[in-house]
Design a protein around this nucleic acid. Structure first.
Lengths: 201, 201
DNA sequence: CTCTTCGTTGCACTCAGTGCAGTAAATGAC
DNA sequence: GTCATTTACTGCACTGAGTGCAACGAAGAG
């Protein structure tokens, strides 16, 4: 925790560029819209070269949505802590809520970004890192492969629906409420393991 | 049905180009992979110009997944026939199964396409037309807006999970079975209309 | 036959994304 | 301290997706 860990000058440099680029991207796209901002604009606003942008982000959309490495590690940690849950679906809901509570500051900005219809298309691609983390966990927790795939995909569906249903003018807590309601309105049963004992793990 | 309707020479011309392009796209990408095929390749294989490609499809991925207009109309018809269902979620499942039964011929090809990890990213974008059709229906059938958004998003999640869980070497019926199982493993409750009478419509 | 419509085409352009070579500064070994 | 190595950044050239525009020619309407 407080993972400041004394970073070397190089690490600090790299992190500064990363943050400057993401900040510039969010700012510019928030004001002009996704299509009206070029990678050159973002790089210039961040004070780095165009090539450096692609050293940090694989795509333009990634600059908007890629998680701070600390956050990514935190999600993995939360999921690991939920290993062996008796009710994996509700455990997923709890992990998501917990993960999102620390993001309330950026939620409104990103929600407004997705109001742009052209940007909505990038959401899927954008939150891939969450999907990836979920995929691994869910494969361990659900014996039934179809149920596992369903749980991961449905989690993404619930988060996306709650996100879109949320009015960014409302406080972020409302969004968390929607997530909670979503996880109760939708229910993924654990299924039955084709070759294993049903019910128990 | 048999909607041949005697098309004019122009309509026939346009439809021929459309089909030639989609056939060429599926064929080439199936053999070489998505990234190794350019729009020029597809246009050349279809015997039309590169510019004509973009007159028919907005993106390269669209050439692979955009539905034949007849199919799109059929989906709308199926949904309209399900208006006023007492159990909207199960009605959605039935519509999806019914819609997919006529696509068994192309299912295996498309499933193999998505095995390519770079192509999986395009799936979301690719099946947008289904999402769009669902969005409208679901907004009419679910009084609770969150439940409506959840139903549409979750339907996509179920179809996607079943599709990925399906082994394309197995007969297409197995895929339909997975869809059926998916719609029972996952359950979206109709929720409660914030301002209306609960339960009844 | 004449005028309009429209599918198609070629051309020029912007921009996303990649490969490669080079610079300069931070790092580590001695 | 010096020297070799690493590495963040940079510039340049290139491929390919997607768009705007003007033009050609055949189909359709009168």
């Amino acid at each position: 925790m407080r993972g400041v860990e004394r970073l070397s000058a190089r690490e600090a440099q790299r992190r500064d560029s990363w943050r400057a680029l993401q900040a510039a991207a969010v700012d510019l796209v928030g004001r002009r819209g996704f299509a009206a901002v070029t990678v050159d604009d973002i790089a210039a606003a961040a004070g780095v070269s165009r090539r450096t942008f692609f050293n940090h982000f694989p795509t333009k959309a990634a600059a908007l949505f890629d998680p701070d490495p600390d956050d990514a590690a935190r999600l993995s940690g939360l999921l690991a802590a939920a290993d062996g849950a008796t009710d994996p679906w509700m455990a997923l809901g709890a992990v998501c809520r917990e993960y999102l509570t620390t993001h309330t500051a950026t939620l409104a900005v990103r929600r407004r970004l997705t109001a742009d219809p052209e940007l909505a298309a990038y959401q899927q691609d954008a939150y891939r890192h969450i999907q990836t983390a979920l995929d691994g966990w869910v494969r361990r927790e659900y014996a039934d492969p179809l149920a596992a795939a369903l749980a991961a995909a449905t989690t993404g569906a619930v988060l996306g629906a709650a996100f879109r249903a949320w009015d960014p003018d409302d406080p972020p807590d409302r969004f968390l409420d929607l997530v909670t309601r979503g996880f109760t309105l939708v229910r993924v049963s654990p299924g039955r393991a084709p070759g294993r004992a049903p019910g128990r793990r």
